[in-house]
Simulated assay, not measured.
Amino acid sequence: MILIRSLLFISLFYLVTATLAILGLPYLAFDRLTVQSLARIWVRASLWLLDKICGVKVEFRGLENLPQGACLIAAKHQSTLETLALPLAAHDFSFVLKRELVAIPIFGWYLQRAEQVAIDRAKRGQALPDLNRQVREALAQGRQIIIFPEGTRRPTGAPAQYKSGVAHLYAAAGAACVPVALNTGLFWPRRSILLRPGVAVIAFLEPIGPGLDKQSFMSLLESRIETASAKLVAEALAADPSLETALARREDAAAH
């Protein structure tokens, strides 16, 4: 039954995505906030389908820790789900993403019009200064920059692999950084089509103020995110022991 529900959701998710991408083309004539409003319509429709078909609900916690103005948002990355849901919390958001995504027809047009921060990894040594410049400009506009410090999705429970890029951004930006913990990988695992019912929690933690040295910042960021994420995973496993069995199977498959 989980497989059937998951396949139905995935099919409708892509159908809704394609439909809104075509019908929403007139939005490209307006400013980034208008394009972001279309993105939130897509997110709400997708999360509604996820809840009604697969029984996966998304719960935000700690929203009081998220400033209304400019900041960095550094999130744990376990699943597609947090990428989808985070724009609902950030009022004027920009993801840090690879420039290749901007080249995708139609989808890339929306990314450009929404003024997302794109990294050209082919530039190598020039990529970081260019990223810092884009982020500083976005923060000066009062925007909230979303970055995944590990760079890619990591399996739930896997050892942390934080990259130094977030520390460089923090130092260059001179802005507060809001860590984000989550347990989304239990419900929408990476590289899996099986979506399991439950409450996926995305928690905004106490902000880290500007001014720390890079090493102290990285240590504090990783500690806060990993500690809080482990607690959220344990909370979900205690509420539904079947999730632990599914998680163990995924870990065993990954090991082989």
Rank of each mutant, 00 (worst) to 15 (best):
I2L: 12
I4M: 10
I4S: 11
F9P: 09
F9M: 03
L12I: 11
Y14L: 09
Y14R: 07
Y14N: 10
L15Y: 02
L15C: 10
V16R: 14
A18I: 05
A18M: 01
T19Y: 02
L20N: 07
I22G: 12
F30N: 03
R32Y: 02
R32A: 09
L33K: 14
L33G: 13
L38P: 06
I41A: 07
W42K: 10
W42D: 02
A45E: 02
W48K: 11
C54P: 04
K57C: 02
V58H: 04
E59F: 00
L63S: 06
E64G: 13
N65H: 15
Q68W: 02
Q68N: 14
Q68H: 14
G69E: 14
A70N: 04
C71E: 06
C71S: 14
L72S: 12
A74V: 11
A75Y: 03
K76F: 00
H77P: 03
T80V: 08
L81A: 06
L81H: 09
E82M: 07
E82S: 12
A89D: 04
D92R: 15
S94V: 07
S94R: 15
F95V: 07
K98D: 01
E100C: 02
E100S: 13
L101A: 11
V102G: 09
P105W: 01
I106R: 10
I106L: 14
Y110H: 02
A114G: 14
E115Q: 15
E115C: 10
E115P: 00
V117I: 15
A118C: 09
D120V: 09
R121P: 01
A122M: 08
Q126R: 15
A127K: 09
L128S: 07
L128V: 13
D130C: 02
N132S: 10
R133G: 12
V135E: 10
A138N: 08
L139F: 05
A140H: 11
G142F: 00
I146P: 06
F148H: 13
P149I: 05
E150N: 07
G151N: 10
R153H: 10
A158W: 01
P159D: 05
Q161L: 08
S164Y: 01
V166D: 09
A167G: 07
H168R: 12
L169M: 13
L169P: 03
L169E: 06
A172T: 06
A172M: 06
A173F: 02
A175M: 06
A176E: 13
V178M: 05
V178F: 01
A181Y: 01
N183S: 05
N183M: 04
L186S: 08
W188G: 12
R190I: 00
R191T: 08
L194F: 06
L194E: 08
L195G: 10
L195D: 03
V199E: 14
V201S: 11
I202E: 05
A203H: 14
F204E: 03
L205Q: 12
E206N: 12
P207S: 12
I208E: 07
G209V: 06
G211F: 00
D213Q: 08
Q215A: 15
S216L: 05
F217N: 11
S219A: 15
S219P: 00
E222F: 01
E222A: 15
K231R: 15
K231T: 11
A234E: 12
D240Y: 08
L243F: 07
L243S: 11
A246N: 08
E251N: 15
D252E: 15
A253F: 03
A255Q: 08
